[in-house]
Design a protein around this nucleic acid. Structure first.
Lengths: 214, 214, 214, 214
DNA sequence: GATGAATGAGATTTCATTCAT
DNA sequence: AATGAATGAAATCTCATTCAT
């Protein structure tokens, strides 16, 4: 009675492989052409037929959503890890980690924070993590007291266009940009250079995400 | 021989008006739907037929290029003005001005620095202007000595995704982001926090622009 | 100042022609292959491109709806004309007329009474017309007293499959079927052969239409 | 040498079960969605894989043909039984029985009389049976002398659209329609209301069936 | 110069059928 | 004999661009 399960598993393994291949192919194609790329190119790169693509992902958007979801989970994972350390350095670590994560798979970032049903909870958790990290960094004296969690989030948003511009010819450039931003977040000893524009409220940030989700 | 010229002049005036209307319509439509918007909609909003649109702009891209070119000229103008003052404040003024300029007409920023034949000279002049402004600011002690002209340029690139995310729900948020970046550009009195990642070279920046132009 | 209107009218006339051609082509293609026929065949038969088809009818269903609407209007017209005469013969005239109308353009009858927003009012008016015609016929002694308006409606429904089966090889057969039905509607002098099954209520008939509209 | 046969028999029994399950599932699915329903759904409802479906029925049409064949056999059986009684009531009994049979499994009626190789003989036998029944009814004085066998056959065709329209909301309505038709078939004592349209010839009816078989 | 209908290649998506396991 | 993932041709629909009037 072992044969049937084995058979099933064998079939399923190939299917899982195809799913993986499709996701990898989509990443590559999107990285080069953005999400405007035609789906049959993705199928061709993955080495499968159109029907296989649509068996695994019922619409093009579902395929994008899966990639986005993976990236979001990775960011959440990085955020959780950074928050756990609690040494005040987590914020800076996360910014660099998030930059690296976004730089690795460019092309579909515009959907990263789209607030789908699944995304809503992620957004809320991520906002909370960022909030904790900012607080920790303030306690550790590593960032200015008027730094807002939404400033950090905007920083993450800003990486998208940086990465899109620099990924092929200056793939490490985003690190420099983040360094500059971290420098801007540092406490200002003289106190004479307080930020004069109020930060977004978290509610506004959520609304921005909702609005950008079409 | 007076009537025909009059008529011609009238025709020409109307044609110029149509061209203006098309550009304005395109700005509005792109702001709402991005450059994926259909050209029919632009013609409809402009109140002209498709043929008129294609008389003035031989392809959709040509229409976008014209908008982009106007924005580039405005940025160059702002840059020149800032550089002329020579008081070391020009860099900061330009960053805010450029932010405002990009925020006013979002939707087609991804083509802003695409290096068309016309764009090539603009890019070079703009790089030179930024270089001057950075030098002036350094002399005035307003920015750190290791600030590179490409850091400033990346800052301008980063505004695109900021503006796209925030324009409807937090339309002033980009100012806050720029403030943070300017803070990061300030001289570091203690000197202990030098930037550890090397900046892009101007040549690399140019190559990024070329690569992003498809 | 006459040229521009003429030009516009000329363009519009061709567009109207194309619309007509598309409707005619659709009728022919649907008559042969039913509504499963591919739209590009319709476009090809009409001698226009796909885009033209979709300029006139935004979806395939819209094209079908237009055909259906025309047929419905024709039936309403026939019904009104029959009801106006008021001589008790209108019911029989209408049945034959409706048969002819359905037989002329077979292939999309299954959508004839689908209760779209537009169809709802037509259904109600048609039910009313049939009701009047049945009453007139009863007064004239031409139909049995237990004949219901829904019996007549079912008769119209039944024509669909008759027509689909016979249209190519026995195109007049539906007339025979209607004659038989009309004979069944005649008063039964002996009175011994009353119909034993109750008729549908008009409300049930409406619900049938709604249910068949998907 | 007992085990292998046992296993084979078991396998065969299971195979027969699967075949039955598929036919039942197909009936249900077709009843709801018509023959446009996807085969995947039939397999899923039957609880078997696609391969099993295609082992039993080499094409979707073969599956439909099998259902159609079963229904045809049932109709033939009903016809033979009605003809055997020879009491002149068989025609009316058959019409009601046939109505019930069609109403029970709607959705694939349009293929009922398609003249496949297998269908050809059935059609001929059924025409003969109907002919006998009509003759018996005439002898018994229950139907008019000018009633043709093809009139009866058209009546059976007409049930298809009646059933499709009424099956969910007025499932007994077809009986009323048949009653009306039977009333129309009754002898006309006054003789003044002879049918004026000639009936189809049996040969024409056969040709209709052939033409409708695509 | 202006018009807007026409074009048709190309995009996404579906589904009957095949076949490796 | 059974499974269900894979296939790819075909369907509907879009839109940048052309061109007759």
């Amino acid at each position: 009675m072992t044969a049937p399960p084995t058979r099933q598993r064998a079939v399923r393994r190939e299917a899982v492989q195809n799913r993986e291949r499709l996701l990898i192919a989509a990443k590559h194609v999107f990285a080069v052409k953005g999400t405007d790329a035609a789906v049959d190119e993705i199928a061709r790169v993955a080495g499968v037929g159109m029907g296989t693509l649509y068996r695994h992902f019922p619409t093009k958007q579902a395929l994008i959503d899966e990639l986005v979801s993976e990236l979001r989970q990775r960011l959440l994972h990085l955020g959780r890890r950074a928050a756990l350390k609690g040494d005040g350095l987590g914020l800076e670590t996360l910014l660099v980690d998030a930059g690296r994560a976004q730089a690795r798979d460019p092309g579909y970032m515009q959907f990263l924070w789209s607030r789908s049903d699944a995304g809503r909870a992620s957004v809320d958790e991520f906002l909370q993590l960022l909030s904790d990290l900012v607080d920790q960094a303030k306690v550790a004296g590593r960032v200015r007291s008027d730094l807002s969690v939404t400033d950090v989030w905007m920083t993450l948003w800003s990486l998208r266009s940086i990465v899109e511009m620099t990924r092929t010819r200056a793939p490490a450039a985003w690190r420099r940009h983040i360094e500059l931003l971290i420098a801007g977040m540092r406490p200002d000893p003289s106190g004479e250079r307080a930020l004069s524009v109020r930060p977004m409220t978290p509610a506004e940030a959520r609304r921005c995400i909702d609005a950008a989700s079409h």
